[in-house]
Each structure stands twice: as structure tokens, then as C-alpha cells.
Design a protein around this nucleic acid. Sequence first.
RNA 1: GCGGGCGUAGCUCAGUGGUAGAGCGUCACGUUGCCAACGUGAAUGUCGUGAGUUCGAAUCUCAUCGCCCGCUCCA
Length: 481
Amino acid sequence: MAKLTKLDDIVSLCKRRGFIFQSSEIYGGLASCYDYGPLGVELKNNVKKAWWKSVVQMRDDVVGLDCSILMHPMVWKSSGHADKFADLIAECKKCNTRTRVDHLKDKEDNNIENASGQDLTNKVCPSCGTIGQFTEPMPFKLMFETQMGANIDDSMTIHLRPETAQGIFANFRNVLDSTRVKVPFGIAQIGKSFRNEVTTKAFIFRTREFEQAELEFFCEPGTDDQWYEHWKEARCKWYTDLGMKKENLRFRDHDPDELAHYAKGCVDVEYKFPFGSGDWQELEGIANRTDYDLRQHQRGMRTLNKWYENDRDLSKISLIDESEDYNKGPLSYFDEQKKERYIPYVIEPSAGMDRSTLAFLVDAYDEEEVRGETRNLLRFHPALAPTKVAIFPLVKKDGMPEIARKIYDNLKKYFNCFYDQKGAVGRRYRRQDEAGTPFCVTVDGQTNEDNTVTVRNRDSMEQTRINADNVLSYMREKLDM
RNA sequence: GCGGGCGUAGCUCAGUGGUAGAGCGUCACGUUGCCAACGUGAAUGUCGUGAGUUCGAAUCUCAUCGCCCGCUCCA
């Protein structure tokens, strides 16, 4: 079975069928930015809907949220992004390799402790081994900056969020106070995030503007391991339930040295993308973030005045130490049954919606030989298919278009449908195959006699006759919608 | 940011200094009674962009933008 083997094939398919276009293409494109076309926006919306249904709608213990992208600067001080997203990078003058200054190691035989981290004279280039031949360290701003306020004198530099998670932590108290939730419970959100990645990569796989679906699941310390396992399983099942092939999915546990300093554990759900090297690439990360974030925000809340006093300059301040009774702080939770307060632990499944959309697209792609011709099709799960049903008159006469149109007008109230009366019906079928439409309904000569129509299945190409009045109920059952 | 490759119609590509091309797709008309049928016709090009060399540039040179592969980076 010939499949998409190169990224170029995927890009070409995406453009040809209107899934994904390069942003600002008429102006030569803007690096790392992509637009979703008519089929793409339906597909991606369906992926997001499926996530929301699984993570929020179908659960009694998760509520939703939609935070603003712009947040108070202190959010990023507390989260650590303001400091860590401003790394210094130095370039080796010899081989032009850029390395983060804090990753540079001292020359080994130099026993003298080098007090200054900024002194690069004894640092070794990890690429070519040259010592001390670096450019001045240059700051990398990994967060997007923007100005809030039209009046330049009064405007404030703020950041576009680099992750949706912090908006959830910042609203932890609000949700607790307004929704009667009890630990264990989760808060879910889907939304755009922005990161000035040093290198973008592979089509929409790593872009600077991207969409995340994140869940912060709050649980009692001590139960975190079991919830971690629970979400690992639940999230993996989500992909396979939506038709993604098991052999293209795997878990990869992070090595201890790869873990963020606050994380107790982290596992990636990876998909075997057909990129050049055929590498496994991350779709989603599931992390045990412990009580780090809520505790950090408690410190941040206590630091607010210091920020005002220091000209609202994040670089001039550091977070105030944690209070001894932090467990009873403003972001703590009171357990009614145990009559005790604690800071909940957090399990965070964080999925990339653009990556998932691409993976579902690639995974659904298929080519098969039918009567010496190649049939291209996208075997989307019905929940993900951009169009659910296409309705055709077999030919454009004998009242068939009118009947087909009537069926279409009724069905489109319930799901995305497509009407087409042009050209040979075989071509229309194949066209829908390429868009991944699960069913085609065709009105033919017999419809006038006994009010039946044919339903053609995308995957098997088989046809069934059903009564025209039952099309809606038939589709609802088959599509499970 | 480094190294390599690439950029011509919606897509795949041919065209290496002398009139801008093919296949597929798209559209129209006719035909067509179930799987990319057939006939006729049509539309679609800043040859990525900008400069330069030249009588003349898709073609040569430089710059720039974008994409792919490999480094580097990925809190």
C-alpha cells in the first residue's frame, strides 16, 4: 500500500484539497505560520470537539475554561517563563554553532571555580571543542512581546501566553469558588499559544503560533501517581478510539535529566510521522507537575507589591520566599471530609491540536487499486470527517436533483453535508473519498418508484438501498451523532 | 544561525540565454442510469521577490523571502 512517505506529499495533499495553506502565501509566505482551509478548519474543529467531548463533556470531574491570551506579567514571573524564556545564547566564532550559555561547560582541566557565569573565556564549544571563542551572549526572547495600551507613554509590555496552563492555575480559585467542584477535579482549556522557537520544524509540526488542548487535573497529594496512570491510559485511548492506528502510537517516558525541575514524571504520546527520518514525534505530553505551579503563584501573589515598587520591571525582582504555612495559602484546597488544607497535585495532559490534526490526516490517508486505477481516500473516523454525508442525484434530470436537494436541505440541519449534481457519479464518489466523507446518498430512477435511495460507504464502496425517509435516522446511527 | 537541496499553472513536473509548456485537476456545453467514462470548448502564470549582467534572462550573478533535509535549539 503506497502511502504518504514524505512531508512534501503531505504538504501537497493539504494544499490541493484545501486543508492547510501557507500563511500570507501571496506575499511569499510568513515563516512558520499556516492557515487552515475549508476542509482543514472542519477537521481541526472536529479534533477539538472530540477532545472536549472526551475530556469535559463525558466526565463529571472536569470543567472547561477559556482564558485570555494576554495575562498579567507576574503570571510569567511566577511560572518561571519570564526568567527561563530569556536565555542567553552565544555563538562559537569558529563553527557558528549557537549554544545556550548555561549549557556551556568549563574546560575540564581548569580547577578554578568560575564564579561568573558570564565569563566565557574558559567555556568549551560543544560542537567543535574550541575554547573561549564566543560572541557576546545575546538574549533570546522565547516569549512574544506586545504592547498593551494605545498611548505609547502609558503602554505596558506584556507577553502572549506561551502555554494555556497558567491561565488555568490563575483561575483555580475562581473555579473552586463558583462551581462546587471537589478535588479530584480538572479544568480544561483549548486555545492558542505562542513561542519564539529557536527553530521551527516540519510544516505545522512545530510552529510559533499553535493551539493547545490542556487539562490540569487537581488531586490529593499521594493519589497523583494513580491519576497519572489514569490519564496516560485515557489519553492514549482517545487517539485510538478516533481511529489512529495503534502501531503508529507509543509512549515515551522522559529520562530523569530531561524532566523539568518541578515534574515528578512525564511521558510523551508519540506518533510515527512520515517525516524524512521516519521519527517518532510528540503529540502530547502528560506530566505530573506536583504542587509546583499553585505554590509558585502563591509566592507571586505575595510579590506583587515588589513589582510595583520596582517600576513594574520583572527583571529587577525575584519571587518572595514561600511562607511556612503555604499549605494554608490562598490557592490551597480545604478537604471537607479530612478537615485539612493542602495544595493539590496536578496531572497535566497537554495535547497539540495542530499536531494531532496533522497526525489524524496522515494516519487516515490511504491509496488502493480499484480496477487498475488508484483510489485516494482519507479514512477519517466519522467524528473527524469534515463532511459527513454527500448527496447526489444520479443524473441531472427526471426530477432527481429536486429530490436530492430536499434530502440535502433536511440533513444539513444536523451535520455537515455536501450537495453535488455535476458530472459522472463515479467521479463525485471519488472526490468525496479524497475529502474523507464517510457516506454518499444517491437519488436514482428507482427513487421515484419506491422512495428508496442508495447509500454508498466510503471504505468498502458498497451500496445499500434504504428508504429516503430514513436517511436521517440511518446516518445518525452510522455516524453515532 | 550554520551546511546542503529546492522554488515555473491549483497539484506533479518539463523547459539551461531567443515566442511560457505537458499531464492531472478546475469550469462550460453535450452525452452519460453507480465508481476518477467520452466528445467539444474554456479559463488560469508577478517563472517566489528585488536588483545586476546582456540586444535579449525562467535560464547567468548578487541579495532577499519561503519550503525541505541535516546540525544547533526545543524552558
